[in-house]
Simulated assay, not measured.
Amino acid sequence: MSRTSYDRYLTVFSPEGRLYQVEYAFKAISGSGHTAVAIRGKDTTVVITQRKVADKLIDASTVTHLFGITPTIGCVMTGLTADAHAQVARARREAADFRYKYGYEITPDALSRRLANINQVYTQRAGMRPLGISMIIIGIDPEVGPQCFRLDPAGYFVGFHATAAGQKHQEAMNHLEKKWKKLDNGRGADDPAKAGQSLSRDEVIEMAIEAMSTVHSTDYKPGEVEIGICSSHEDEEETKGLWRIMDEEEIEEHLLAYAEKD
C-alpha cells in the first residue's frame, strides 16, 4: 500500500507507525497564520496572540482567539476557528459539570487532563476526526499558583513555564528557551522553576510581547495583539486571581514599556 492509502484512514497506522490524519491536524494549526505565546511567572500567567481581521467589513470587536472558561481559567486557541469554538464550548461544559458535581471550581490541570483525554479519543475512532487546534490553558491554582498547559490534537498535554503554538511556534520556542537560559544563569541557579518564579507581573507581560515582536520582526500596535492574563499580583485589585482580557489602553502601556526598555 502507498502512503496515500494510509492517510485516508484515521485509525490505520502506516508501516512507520504514523497516523497521517493526526499529523495533518498539526499542519492545520501551523497553517492558521497565527502565533500564540504563553508565559508564567511568580504570581502571573499571560497569553498573547495576534489579532488579524480578514476583511474590512468584519466587525473587529467580534474577532478573538481568547476565551474565558471559568472565572479563574482562560485559554488561547490557535488553528481552525470553528473547531476552536467547539472545543471551548466543551471545555465550559466540562468545567460546569465539575463544579456541579464537586462544589468547587475545576483546576487548570484537571481541566487540561480531561480535555486531553477527549482529544485522544478523537484519534482512535473512525467516525470522528481530530480537531485542528492547539489550546493553551492558563489559570491560577489555589494551591500551586499560576499554571500554563498546552494541549494538542493527539491528546498530549503538559505544563510549561513558557510555550508557543501556531505559525512560527518553533522560532518562538527557541527564543523563549534562550531567555530562560539567561534567567537560569542570572536568577535560578540552573533551576528553570526557580527562574520562572522570580518573574514579576510586568516582566512576564513584556517577555511575551518581546517573543511575539522578535519572532515576527514587527513592532505591534495595541489593536494588533490580544493579551489575556490571570494574576494574583497586588496591582490586580478587583480582578485578583481572575481571568481577564486586557483593553487596548493597557496593552499600549505595556507596548510602550517594552519599547522604552529596548
Rank of each mutant, 00 (worst) to 15 (best):
G127Q: 02
Q120F: 00
A164Y: 01
H175P: 00
L255S: 07
L255W: 05
V144C: 05
P15A: 02
G228Y: 06
G139V: 02
Y6N: 02
M246F: 12
R114W: 00
R99A: 14
D97I: 14
L111A: 08
E249L: 12
L57F: 14
G166A: 03
Q167A: 13
V22C: 08
Y102W: 14
M246N: 04
T35K: 04
L111V: 06
I118W: 04
S2G: 01
G68S: 13
Y9K: 09
I229N: 03
G139K: 05
Y24Q: 03
L57K: 07
Y9W: 07
D152K: 01
A164H: 02
P222E: 06
D152N: 11
T64A: 00
T35R: 03
I209E: 12
H216K: 13
T72I: 07
V215G: 06
R8P: 00
M77A: 13
D59N: 15
I39D: 09
M246L: 15
S112I: 05
D141R: 01
W243G: 06
G155I: 04
D184A: 07
D43C: 08
A54T: 12
E226N: 04
V121K: 09
Y220A: 08
T70S: 13
F160V: 01
A162E: 09
I73P: 07
G223W: 02
L10R: 07
Y20A: 03
D43T: 14
D247W: 10
S231P: 06
H85W: 07
T11G: 03
K194T: 09
T49V: 11
V22R: 00
P130S: 03
L66I: 13
D247K: 12
G196H: 06
S134T: 12
A126H: 02
H65N: 14
G139I: 08
P192F: 01
L255P: 09
S213N: 13
A165K: 05
P108W: 08
I69A: 05
K168C: 10
Q147T: 12
K194F: 00
F98Y: 15
I48N: 02
T70W: 08
E236H: 04
I118F: 01
L10H: 05
P130H: 04
Q120T: 06
D184S: 08
T72R: 14
L66S: 07
A82V: 13
M1P: 03
A172Q: 04
E237M: 11
A95G: 08
G139N: 05
E260T: 15
V88G: 09
N119G: 08
G31M: 02
F149R: 02
A96N: 10
Q87R: 12
V76C: 15
R93K: 11
G188M: 06
L242E: 13
R244A: 08
I140Q: 10
K56M: 07
N119F: 02
Q21Y: 08
Y102G: 10
S32H: 07
V88W: 05
W180K: 14
P130W: 04
D97F: 14
A38N: 13
E250N: 14
R40Q: 15
